[in-house]
């Protein structure tokens, strides 16, 4: 009886300490999640727009990071420019155009739908549909073969 209770307590405290460890493990992740420095936004909407745009613009020196993730000096400069552009009242479209006209389409994580990017956008859908149809045909055929 006594023995039973102590194991229960043990298990309980173990769960608590495990939970605590798990939380600790998340801390660096939270700290590293974004390289964005605090900026004097005028409203929450502005800040949300800033974050969204920084997420979808690539940092050209550290090519697999977005402006929001990168701590490179150029990324800091580009974030400041992004901040100025938003303060200036430019639309998201204009801001994307600003970046593309300087760094090329490569800066956009989401490439625009154009003739040269058609394969990129449509390719996966075509591949999926193709393989589904192929699998359907194969299954059908096997079923018929089994019946015969």
């Amino acid at each position: 009886m006594n023995f039973d209770r102590s194991t229960k307590q043990d298990a309980g405290s173990r769960i608590v300490s495990l939970g605590f460890l798990a939380l600790l493990w998340l801390v660096p992740g939270l700290l590293l999640a974004s390289a964005i420095e605090p900026m004097p936004f005028r409203s929450e909407v502005e800040e949300r727009r800033f974050r969204a745009l920084a997420e979808e613009i690539r940092c050209t020196v550290c090519q697999n990071q977005s402006l929001a993730d990168s701590d490179a000096p150029l990324a800091q400069d580009l974030r400041r420019e992004l901040f100025f552009l938003i303060q200036d009242g430019r639309s998201d479209m204009e801001i994307r155009e600003f970046m593309v006209s300087r760094y090329g389409e490569f800066v956009l994580y989401r490439p625009p739908l154009a003739s040269h990017t058609l394969l990129l956008w449509v390719g996966p859908v075509v591949l999926l549909l193709g393989s589904l149809i192929g699998a359907g045909i194969a299954v059908n055929r096997r079923r018929k073969a089994l019946k015969a």
Binding site: T60, V61, P73, L74, D77, L78, E81, R102, Y103, G104
Partner: peptide, 13 residues
């Protein structure tokens, strides 16, 4: 010094 003109030139390194 600030790197704003460099952005206009598309400088990245």
């Amino acid at each position: 010094f600030e790197g704003r003109a460099a952005i206009d030139l598309g400088v990245y390194g």
